[in-house]
Write a protein that binds this DNA or RNA. Structure first.
Length: 224
DNA sequence: GCGACAG
DNA sequence: ATCTTGTCGC
């Protein structure tokens, strides 16, 4: 496995190569294991931050709605946040958390974009490629893509496009709440990405693997 | 030139 | 991103 890029020029170059790759499409098996990963920072931190910011990462694996594995780690951010460069800030820590995760999930949810990115290679795609793991991105809003919201009905979707390319999808995960953005990641296409997120909702707005990973990361922070 | 900009 | 607080609608 190659090392995680450590400077902006290296990341941009890695993203350009990543965008050209065409790995075999993945489809979920019956009773697949779905994981989520999350990073949280010190309370009160605001703005883009900087390299060395204390950070806590966690990942949770679910099987049929039950937690079957967890990992968490205390570490640091490796760069300030900049749009299109999130992988430089969070990549090494998330890579570490996911590497320690057992059992190995079939698919991983990441709070980041995929093809909705200046070089069509957001962190959800990048993390999956580094881990050889199918990934799905879930964010509150698009990075570059545009599209109107879906109907206010649970499960409704609407296209998010860059130029004419559908790169992500709005998904109304719960009626009466803001829709999520679902991003196909490594080895996952748009329809499968939406299916995986719908499968993991458990009636809430936020997919259960991400909600539990966030909870786990905050718990790790509280123990410091 | 200006604003917007995953987390 | 993170956090609190308040307010509204069911």
């Amino acid at each position: 496995m190659p090392d995680w890029p450590t400077d902006p020029a290296q990341l941009v170059s890695a993203q350009r190569l990543l965008a050209l790759e065409t790995p075999a499409a993945w489809t979920p098996p019956a009773d697949y294991l779905v994981a989520g990963c999350w990073v949280c920072f010190s309370r009160g931190l605001s703005g883009p931050g900087r390299a060395g910011d204390p950070a806590w990462g966690a990942a949770v694996v679910l099987a049929g709605g039950h937690v079957v594995g967890r990992s968490s780690v205390a570490g640091v951010a490796t760069a300030p946040y900049a749009p299109g460069m999130l992988a430089l800030r969070l990549g090494p820590l998330l890579n570490d958390v996911v590497r320690r995760l057992t059992p190995r999930p079939d698919v991983l949810l990441v709070d980041a974009t995929g093809r909705d990115h200046p070089r069509r290679a957001g962190l959800a795609l990048h993390l999956g490629a580094m881990q050889s793991l199918p990934t799905v991105g879930v964010t509150h809003r698009p990075l570059l893509a545009t599209g109107t919201w879906p109907a206010d009905e649970a499960g409704a979707t609407a296209a998010l496009i860059i130029d004419t390319d559908p790169v992500a999808s709005w998904l109304r995960s719960k009626r009466g709440t803001r829709p999520l953005v679902v991003h196909p990641g490594w080895r996952v296409d748009l329809d499968i990405a939406v299916q995986v997120v719908r499968d993991s909702l458990a009636g809430r707005r936020t997919p259960e693997p991400l909600r539990l990973a966030r909870q786990s990361a905050r718990r790790a922070r509280a123990e410091q």
